[in-house]
């Protein structure tokens, strides 16, 4: 970054204050806020059932970041904003970050590191089986999100990372199966958002 402030002629260039330059760090900080607030809430005993609250917060934000990541291409095309594509990997990694926190909180705090019990729950309860499946999928995407993997995998990279659509569908189903029949409003909203994104994709495919 600092090297850019001196141009080829050796003269000190005007600091580049274009919004684009600050966008990525800004989004990074904003994306961390849910975690910061949650930690603050726990420290101040704001939650009556903090483990339950953390599970809910991290699960919701994992899913929201998956959906936000899927919005990058539509935003890029509809608003002719090329720069937004630079955020895609970071947003996807935030989805993985919150999903990983979600899983870690479940194993360590909810199950109290009783691995036997955790494995039983994963086998017996289908919404947990599904949740683990989604996390493993996201792990593969996160591990292969670097430039080296993009080069190495070549054409295969795109088809591997297209699985994010399937994983997002499964993540919403994981949520739907977990809530009570009377609390379907939120997961239904996510399902609606996902449907719009998928229809948009499909329409573009057909047009081509």
């Amino acid at each position: 970054m600092h090297s850019q402030s001196v141009n080829k002629e050796g003269a000190v260039a005007k600091p580049v204050l274009s919004p684009a330059r600050f966008l990525k760090p800004l989004v990074f900080i904003v994306a961390l806020l849910p975690a910061v607030f949650a930690v603050y809430g726990v420290a101040n005993s704001q939650y009556v059932d903090p483990v339950e609250s953390l599970l809910k917060i991290t699960g919701e934000w994992g899913l929201r970041f998956l959906l936000i990541t899927l919005c990058v291409t539509p935003v890029q095309i509809i608003f002719k904003w090329v720069g937004v594509a630079k955020l895609r990997r970071m947003l996807g990694l935030f989805a993985f970050f919150y999903a990983t926190m979600h899983l870690a909180i479940w194993v360590v705090l909810d199950q109290g590191l009783d691995l036997q019990e955790a494995v039983n729950a994963i086998v017996e309860k289908k919404f947990i089986t599904l949740g683990i499946t989604v996390w493993v999928g996201l792990l593969v995407l996160a591990v292969t999100s670097n430039r080296w993997s993009v080069r190495k995998l070549g054409r295969k990279w795109k088809s591997v990372h297209n699985s994010v659509y399937v994983l997002t569908v499964l993540a919403v189903v994981h949520f739907v199966w977990q809530v009570k029949a009377s609390e379907l409003l939120e997961p239904t909203a996510y399902l609606g958002a996902l449907a719009v994104l998928l229809v948009w994709r499909f329409m573009r495919m057909v047009k081509r």
């Binding site: 726990v42 101040n44 953390l54 705090l109 909810d110």
Partner: peptide
């Protein structure tokens, strides 16, 4: 059908702040 009833988390405010995260079921 979706969760075990074998254990429960007691909400009694016995531990505050971060230590509340580690209260065993």
């Amino acid at each position: 059908p979706r969760w075990s009833q074998a254990k429960e988390r007691r909400l009694d405010g016995g531990s505050k702040g971060f230590s509340a995260l580690f209260s065993d079921k």
